Simulated scan of single mutants.
Amino acid sequence: MPNRIVDFLSRTQTIPTTEAEILTSLVKPMTLIKGEYLNFEDKIPKHGAFIISGILREFYTDAKGVDYIRRFAYENWWMVDLYELLQNKPALCSVQALEKTELLTFTKEDCWVLMEKCPVASKVLEEISAAEKYSLAKKEKQKRSLSAQENYEYLLKLHPSIDKRIPLFHIASYLNIKPESLSRIRKQMSLTK
């Protein structure tokens, strides 16, 4: 299983064997059951993670107790804010499993070892982190410029059948609409098929 992270990083650049061995020795498998948390908002995160299987949601809660989903993270992707992890900063968001989720986790100390002993893998991780920040900003802009239906259709295009894996009230939160509005959108879409 730890080789999955090396395979993923190797998509953009060849990871030297010695670095791959160090990387696979650093990551630790973790299983979250549905509803379990990886990190909590306002608490210093202990882990970053690479998702082997399952889905995580990253969200924050406002003063009224309403959750706002920032993103979903799926198989073969990351759930880490390197700044928070490396600088011991309280997490801006909580991270929760939406289904049984298999992870490869790494700590702050693991990241420092990686940066010191694995320059190629470290560089790829930094590029991925920068790309993720850009992607999140781009998605936020898109969510604000498209209608709720267009955003929902786009989500389904990127992740077909995701509506069968993620509760609809979470999808509605991600789209910044009420669950009733998502129900109307889904009904309207089924009528136009």
Results as ranks from 00 to 15, higher is better:
Leu175Asn: 07
Asp163Ile: 08
Glu150Leu: 01
Glu127His: 09
Ala172Ser: 08
Ala137Lys: 09
Ser173Phe: 12
Tyr152Cys: 00
Ser147Ala: 00
Arg165Met: 05
Glu140Ile: 03
Pro167Ile: 08
Lys138Ser: 14
Ile162Pro: 04
Tyr134Pro: 00
Ile162Ser: 08
Ala137Glu: 13
Ile166Trp: 00
Ala131Tyr: 07
Leu168His: 14
Phe169Glu: 04
Phe169Lys: 08
Pro179Glu: 11
Glu150Val: 00
Ala131Glu: 12
Leu125Gly: 03
Ser129Lys: 00
Lys164Trp: 05
Ala131Arg: 05
Leu175Ala: 10
Ser129Val: 01
Ile177Arg: 11
Ser173Gly: 06
Leu155Ala: 03
Asn176Ser: 15
Glu153Trp: 00
Leu158Trp: 04
Ile162Ala: 03
Leu168Asp: 06
Glu140Asn: 12
Ile171His: 09
Lys141His: 10
Ser129Cys: 03
Tyr154Ser: 05
Ser161Leu: 11
Lys178Ser: 11
Lys143Met: 14
Gln149Asp: 02
Lys164Asn: 12
Phe169Thr: 05
Ser173Tyr: 09
Lys138Trp: 09
Glu150Ser: 03
Pro179Ala: 12
Asn151Tyr: 00
Ser135Thr: 10
Glu132Met: 10
Arg144Gly: 15
Tyr152Val: 02
Ser145Lys: 13
Glu127Val: 02
Ala130Ile: 13
Ile166Arg: 08
Glu140Phe: 09
Ser129Trp: 04
Glu132Asp: 12
Leu168Pro: 02
Asp163Thr: 07
Pro167Gln: 05
Lys164Val: 03
Lys164His: 12
Ile162Cys: 14
Gln142Arg: 14
Asn176Cys: 01
Glu153Leu: 12
Leu168Trp: 06
Leu155Gly: 06
Ser145Asp: 04
Lys139Asn: 14
Leu158Lys: 13
